[in-house]
């Protein structure tokens, strides 16, 4: 079947097997390998992308189900080489070590801050509870998201 998905503002058309998962569509066709394929069981959160602004696990969405929807991946966050505040926060607060969970963590955190610009630590921990990190113990990730919240409050984000 032929499917057209809007990824980071660009329509991508491809002939696919109907059972193809969104995560593979994103990684294979436009080659956006920032989205990671982790557990494949909707537990780990490495594959999180935004679908119409909501974070979803792209290993548990068929590519065909994303037709006509707006997909946003980690590649869309930095603009002209300037990191998104969430990305910068992960850099500043050492929110990653191996980096495998990072794209999903950041896309989840970005959606949290879009909905709730000043989250408490508890709210951050709840928001990322569907994403697993085996390196950091989460404390630095929580600090990174708070860093982004505080810096966005001081300097409102470009849209």
């Amino acid at each position: 079947m032929e499917v057209t998905i809007n990824i980071n503002g660009e329509p991508v058309t491809r002939e696919i097997e109907p059972a193809l998962l969104l995560v593979h569509f994103i990684r294979d066709t436009p080659g956006l390998t920032g989205t990671h394929w982790g557990c494949d069981t909707s537990n780990c959160g490495a594959c999180v992308v935004q679908m119409d602004g909501l974070p979803v696990k792209s290993c548990t969405v068929l590519a065909a189900m994303a037709e006509g929807h707006e997909i946003r991946t980690i590649e869309a966050l930095s603009i002209d080489g300037v990191l998104d505040p969430v990305q910068q926060g992960f850099h500043e607060e050492h929110g990653l070590q191996c980096g495998f969970c990072t794209p999903g963590m950041i896309m989840t955190a970005r959606a949290l801050l879009d909905a709730n610009p000043d989250p408490t630590e508890d709210e951050i921990r709840t928001a990322i509870s569907g994403a697993i990190c085996r390196c950091t113990g989460y404390s630095n990730i929580v600090r990174a998201v708070r860093w982004a919240a505080e810096h966005e409050a001081a300097q409102p984000r470009r849209s």
Partner: peptide
């Protein structure tokens, strides 16, 4: 029930 990202779907 699951986690917030799963609950979005």
């Amino acid at each position: 029930i699951a986690d917030p990202v799963v609950r979005n779907r």
